[in-house]
């Protein structure tokens, strides 16, 4: 495993315009979390995971390894069967971006982005500056009156991200948000996400099954194995944020991709902890 380079972090803080916040304060902590579904499938076993303020954390693994389950647990959409989730920080507003844009088709872009604020009791007029700011952040200024069906796949996803950002969440949860998009759109959105993350100094937990995407985006990659879902490796990506196209051409990037790939392959070949054969 590559040793984290403290120097890289220092460079990031010096060159990036993001405030050099105490970057490693924990925001959420999963302690020995297990999740067994009602149908008996063990989705997660003994997961220990810390999410630190300001980091971009990727959960990488094959399908069925419980990546999405971790997001659902963090979002409070499901409860752990075993273990617990602590939130050391007092405020932990969440934003959630799904694999599909999941916009309300009957509402225009403005009303879709307004929704989280509206559910907090903000009127249209009160919410307007914040909604317009969120739309500007994802590059959708001027599209507030468009209906979802009038937008391309990438623009729908941008609207979905704007909605997740509307409440200025402390933690942004993203569940394979770009998996359904074409390569070109995905790369553009990756770049924009990196820039946005630095601009907002946000904390992001990003679920993906792409090694390249995870290395490009993350400060830290947690590699997971299936049946039962568990954490098997962690890869630090010490390159400074924000990154750009040049990063993809660097030897460091290629080396980190190889390392992450190897970790993933080991994860897929690995026997479940305790030597049991996972029941499916």
């Amino acid at each position: 495993m590559a040793a984290p380079l403290p120097a890289a972090r220092a460079v990031a803080n010096a060159t990036g315009d993001a405030p050099s916040a105490p970057a490693r304060e924990p925001l959420a902590r999963l302690a020995q979390v297990g999740k067994t579904f009602q149908n008996g499938v063990e989705a997660l076993r003994a997961v220990d995971l810390e999410i630190r303020r300001g980091e971009f954390l990727s959960l990488l693994g094959p399908s069925g390894c419980g990546k999405s389950t971790i997001l659902r647990l963090l979002a409070g959409l499901a409860n752990p069967s075993l273990g617990r989730i602590d939130w050391p920080a007092t405020e932990h507003d969440l934003g959630f971006v799904f694999q599909e844009p999941t916009l309300m088709p009957w509402a225009n872009v403005f009303d879709n982005v307004w929704l989280p604020l509206r559910l907090q009791g903000q009127s249209r007029a009160t919410a307007r500056p914040r909604v317009e700011e969120a739309l500007a952040q994802v590059g959708l200024s001027g599209f507030d009156r468009a209906y979802p069906r009038e937008l391309s796949g990438g623009m729908k996803m941008r609207a979905s991200i704007a909605r997740a950002l509307a409440t200025r969440p402390a933690l942004l949860l993203m569940d394979e948000p770009f998996a359904a998009l074409d390569e070109i759109t995905r790369m553009k959105l990756n770049d924009d996400l990196v820039a946005l993350k630095c601009e907002l100094n946000a904390t992001v937990v990003f679920v993906t099954h792409s090694v390249f995407e995870s290395v490009y985006l993350s400060d830290r990659i947690v590699v997971m194995a299936p049946r039962p879902g568990r954490v098997v490796a962690e890869v630090a990506v010490p390159a400074p944020q924000p990154r750009n196209e040049d990063f993809r051409l660097r030897a460091e990037y290629a080396e980190l991709c190889r390392e992450t790939s190897r970790a993933l392959h080991r994860a897929m070949g690995a026997e479940p902890a305790g030597g049991e054969t996972g029941s499916q």
Partner: peptide, 24 residues
């Protein structure tokens, strides 16, 4: 997913009905 979203933002079932189920 939209139901999950409403649940995550702790929407009351009344609002869920009014803003989500009825338009859908």
């Amino acid at each position: 997913n939209l139901l999950d979203l409403f649940q995550m933002y702790r929407a009351s079932s009344w609002r869920q009905l009014l803003w989500l189920r009825i338009p859908a």
